[in-house]
């Protein structure tokens, strides 16, 4: 632990500011709370929002897991885990079931989360309407009016043009029937895990200076139409390492001829299954 910095890097005033914002975020599910995002020693776009949320949460009794693309060993996940063990001295783990706080980029673990766990998402763009309306002053008003026609039409246009909704990740959701919310760039495969989750889910967008939350046991609907219900990704293949047919798969190119194989994106889930396999 580096002694010249406060526990978990941030000063106490900053943590209090974050904590107040987080409590409001939980009280207004899916609503983006502006907060005084600080400059962190990691670049914007690399998880500064998630890191600030995690820093506001962490205490000496916590066990932290950090994943990127579902994996504990990707370089950015390693770096963030290294950061917290350096500035907070907290215990870290790669096991989903052992963690009290899980910071993630782009995935929700396959292993079901529990009520005593908190999932922290890194969010690059918190505003689900941003690609349709770049002006913040206007998107704020659309949220105030709960006017999500722009998004419905975008999805409808996809169907008219392609026969499908052409959004495969960061698929917009409606939280508690009120706020249109970005689930962060998780594949839509993970969207059902947001609905009525036993674990509290917190979202931090550092560069855009917004926090939001999905409380546990909250209704989270992925937008869809009656004749085009929401569907998640499916594979004909199963994981080449653990045989799972239920997990999100990464496609790996294994030779110069372009031969592909499919493996679990969640490395802990895959590793646990392999360990349990009869050898």
């Amino acid at each position: 632990m580096t002694p010249s910095y406060n526990f978990a890097f941030l000063d106490e005033n900053t943590k209090r500011m974050l904590r107040r914002a987080l409590l409001k975020a939980v009280a207004i599910p899916g609503y983006q709370v502006p907060f005084g995002s600080r400059e962190m020693p990691l670049p914007y776009g690399w998880g500064t929002g998630g890191i600030q949320v995690t820093a506001a949460l962490l205490g000496p009794d916590d066990v932290l897991k950090v994943i990127d693309q579902g994996a504990d060993d990707t370089t950015n996940a390693v770096n963030i885990r290294r950061f917290f063990s350096r500035v907070a001295g907290v215990a870290t783990t790669e096991r989903t079931s052992e963690a009290s706080v899980i910071q993630t980029r782009h995935r929700i673990p396959e292993t079901s989360l529990r009520e005593d766990q908190i999932l922290v998402f890194q969010v690059p763009e918190p505003e689900p309407l941003r690609t349709l309306e770049p002006r913040e002053a206007e998107t704020r008003t659309l949220h105030a009016l709960a006017d999500y026609g722009l998004m419905h039409v975008k999805l409808y246009e996809d169907i008219a043009q392609y026969g499908h909704i052409a959004t495969s990740y960061d698929y917009p959701v409606l939280v508690d029937g009120r706020f249109l919310t970005s689930p962060s760039p998780i594949p839509k495969f993970d969207n059902p895990k947001l609905d009525h989750s036993p674990a509290l889910m917190l979202f931090g967008a550092g560069r855009e200076k917004r926090l939001y939350a999905i409380p546990p046991y909250t209704k989270v609907e992925s937008l869809a139409f009656d004749d085009h219900p929401f569907e998640i990704q499916q594979w004909e293949e199963t994981c080449a390492l653990c045989g799972s047919g239920k997990s999100y798969l990464d496609e790996v190119v294994v030779d110069d001829q372009g031969t592909r194989m499919f493996v679990c994106s969640d490395t802990d889930y895959c590793g646990q299954r392999q360990a349990e396999m009869p050898s």
């Binding site: 950015n76 980029r105 760039p185 594949p187 839509k188 990464d250 994106s265």
Partner: peptide, 10 residues
């Protein structure tokens, strides 16, 4: 940074 989960989805 790795984006292969989203790339796979695309």
């Amino acid at each position: 940074l790795p984006h292969y989960v989203d790339f796979q989805a695309e």
